[in-house]
């Protein structure tokens, strides 16, 4: 008894959308929360923000970035009608949102989906939403239209972290009345945004993508540090005060399994390559 994929839409080489039937997640869902999915037995459980949802259909739409084996496998091996073994959620806490006025959402790659998710909540409260959608390069960047419905203006920026940071600095410099910056992506990126938020003394809410293997902080793998306090991204997060989050510690922890993840992806790509060759041979015959 799994969770059927209702729709898969490939956006480009790096991103795709997955609409999954998981009505249980939506009964109590609040903006900013996420789900954890496990595609199959023996798979790896991964946290993904709820990019979009449809309460009448009971479906959640996930924006997935191809990062490692699990996300690549989902892209090439799973299609409409297939089932995911597990969809857990909602996980995390929706932060205490208020109408503060002018809000800048800034995402980087997958992080755009996270700020969009939270941004919908901010928009409902009457905030004026501005959106800078950051991407590593032009080839993988997505259309601003994906995120535009909540924002009074949206700018797609690409060319790496520094480039997006410049855009953020320019925005805040011009818009001195910016009350809140919400950022999400990778901690390396969020750390740079914090620099801007700090200089301009703007409140900063940021998203901690920690290694997470259960939805209830059981294992402590999702530990994050805030001004010396230990918190858990699954229980207390994923949104934290950007002025307090220890980005370097998070970067360090996120690197724990990098070598293993590379190895898993390499093996999977080899497997795909073999299959390609095999089917090419068949075609020739």
């Amino acid at each position: 008894m799994g969770f059927p994929i209702l729709k898969k839409e490939v956006l480009n080489d790096r991103f795709y959308l997955l609409e999954v039937h998981a009505p249980h997640v939506l009964k109590k869902f609040k903006h900013g929360q996420f789900v954890m999915i496990l595609s199959k037995k023996g798979g790896e459980i991964i946290p993904l923000t709820v990019f979009n949802y449809d309460k009448t259909k009971g479906s959640v739409t996930l924006l997935v970035e191809v990062r490692g084996k699990s996300t690549k496998e989902l892209l090439v091996r799973f299609g409409e009608g297939d089932e995911l073994k597990d969809v857990v959620g909602p996980v995390g806490i929706s932060p205490n949102l208020k109408n503060v006025g002018k809000v800048l959402l800034v995402g980087y790659n997958y992080g755009n989906a996270c700020v969009y998710n939270l941004g919908r909540g901010l928009k409902e409260l009457g905030n004026e939403i501005h959106f800078i959608a950051g991407f590593e390069d032009s080839g993988s960047s997505l259309s601003g239209g994906l995120f535009a419905d909540i924002a009074v203006d949206i700018k797609v920026a690409f060319g790496g972290i520094k480039k997006v940071k410049e855009e953020v600095r320019d925005f805040v410099d011009i818009n001195k009345d910016t009350a809140l910056i919400v950022s999400a992506g990778i901690p390396e990126f969020e750390k740079e945004i914090e620099e801007v938020a700090d200089v301009f003394e703007v409140d900063h809410l940021t998203h901690a993508s920690a290694i997470m293997i259960d939805p209830i902080g059981l294992s402590g793998s999702d530990k994050v540090f805030l001004d010396g306090d230990v918190k858990y991204a699954s229980l207390d997060g994923p949104w934290f005060d950007g002025h307090k989050l220890d980005y370097d510690a998070l970067i360090q922890r996120n690197n724990i399994f990098v070598e293993y993840e590379k190895e898993a992806l390499r093996r999977f790509e080899e497997e795909l390559e073999k299959e390609r060759k095999k089917s090419a041979r068949k075609k020739r015959i």
């Binding site: 023996g42 798979g43 459980i45 084996k69 496998e73 293997i213 922890r253 724990i256 093996r267």
Partner: peptide, 27 residues
């Protein structure tokens, strides 16, 4: 890096079958 709680260490292996990594498990 390299410090685990027993629960994380055991959960990876027992629940997600990390001992089969990378052939048959992804954790």
């Amino acid at each position: 890096i390299g410090v685990y709680t027993a629960i994380e260490f055991l959960t990876r292996i027992n629940l997600y079958e990390a001992f089969k990594f990378p052939e048959e498990a992804d954790t």
